[in-house]
């Protein structure tokens, strides 16, 4: 800046040149930075495309050998190299379903408690505690499920279920067989604890976003807290809650380690939820490093592809729902 005071013409010429050089340099770094950041964005795009491409290419041998029958066949025999995905798909859906049956009502009720009933000073601590549940790594849930939850269910809960529903038409076959401890019910239960914080956190946020005037109007008409919740808050926040539930479902479908510990890794479809089964992610985790032969490996990758497609659809719906909510708010 001090050069401005100089009035020597040669210097001024230099100054103009150096000024142009500085501007040029600034423009160059500006463009370079823009290009670098854009490349990083394209890299993120490339990763997802890479994931999909790698899975598709990897599963070609299996899909060629078994065709669409791969999805519908229960056989899983590494010795004869016959593979079918039915049992893992069934196990994935059943365990996730059990998880959602438990976690959705509980999660929504916790959000109801946190937003409408809980004293203000307790809200943050309880909220953080529930979110800590989401921070615990899944392998911890797995080891805990194997050594603590499974023996407990085997000893106390499962015999009770078996005895109670023995002979009842549908429920009887649902709770049939010896109490192994490990199995689809145990896996579903652990998944429920794991996705609970996701459903709670999102439900709490959307319940909080309900305009106070709507609630106050309902209270003014003489509604009870529960009636306000049921008839005002839930209808208003429905889209967001569904988004949160879908997000939790996406997690449950793809969860690996916690399930691998307690599912039992049995490639069969059984009506009883007490029976051991397998899920897509557990099959891959258990068998991939031991898979001998291209067809075995490829079948496991094809399982991964199916899992990815299912979770992609569920997560896309979740995002769409939450986006719609955002647009309405903004």
């Amino acid at each position: 800046m001090s050069e401005v005071t100089l009035n020597d013409t040669t210097l001024r010429g230099n100054e103009a040149r150096s000024r142009a050089a500085v501007l040029h340099r600034l423009r160059a770094t500006d463009t370079a930075f823009r290009i670098v950041t854009r490349t990083a964005v394209l890299a993120v795009l490339a990763i997802l495309s890479g994931v999909i491409l790698a899975l598709v290419i990897g599963s070609v041998p299996a899909l060629k050998a078994f065709g669409l029958g791969f999805v519908g066949s229960e056989v899983w025999n590494p010795v004869t190299e016959q593979f079918g995905a039915l049992a893992p798909i069934y196990g994935t859906l059943v365990t996730s379903f059990i998880a959602m049956v438990i976690a959705v009502p509980v999660g929504i009720m916790i959000a109801f408690f946190l937003t409408e009933l809980c004293p203000l000073w307790l809200r943050r601590p309880i909220g953080i505690a529930i979110e800590l549940l989401a921070g615990i790594p899944s392998i911890i849930y797995g080891i805990w499920g194997l050594f603590v939850l499974a023996p407990f269910l085997q000893k106390y809960v499962q015999p009770f279920l078996i005895d109670t529903f023995d002979g009842v038409p549908v429920l009887g076959s649902l709770f049939e067989g010896p109490p192994y401890g490990i199995g689809m019910l145990t896996a579903g239960f652990i998944l429920a604890i794991m996705v609970l914080p996701f459903i709670t956190a999102i439900s709490r946020d959307v319940f909080d976003a309900v305009p106070a005037v709507l609630k106050e109007a309902a209270y003014g008409l003489g509604c009870t807290t529960w009636e306000v919740f049921k008839s005002v808050i839930v209808p208003y926040a429905r889209v967001g809650v569904i988004g949160g539930v879908m997000l939790g479902l996406g997690r449950a479908l793809g969860e690996t380690m916690a399930v691998t510990f307690v599912i039992g890794n049995a490639h069969k479809v059984s009506a009883s939820i007490l029976a051991p089964g397998t899920t897509i992610s557990a099959s891959i985790a258990n068998e991939f490093t031991e898979a001998v032969g291209d067809l075995y490996t490829s079948s496991l990758i094809a399982l991964g592809l199916i899992l990815f497609v299912i979770t992609f659809i569920v997560l896309a719906i979740a995002r769409y729902m939450l986006l719609r909510l955002q647009q309405r708010a903004g």
């Binding site: 997802l48 290419i57 479908l253 891959i284 990815f308 896309a316 995002r319």
Partner: peptide
């Protein structure tokens, strides 16, 4: 458009099953 697309993809990657990431890196 690029940002909107990548924002969506990033959200999917954020909750994608991590075992699938393992398969991907195994392949490549």
């Amino acid at each position: 458009r690029l940002s909107t697309l990548v924002r969506f993809i990033n959200d999917i990657l954020l909750s994608a099953p991590s075992i699938v990431i393992g398969l991907f890196v195994y392949e490549v």
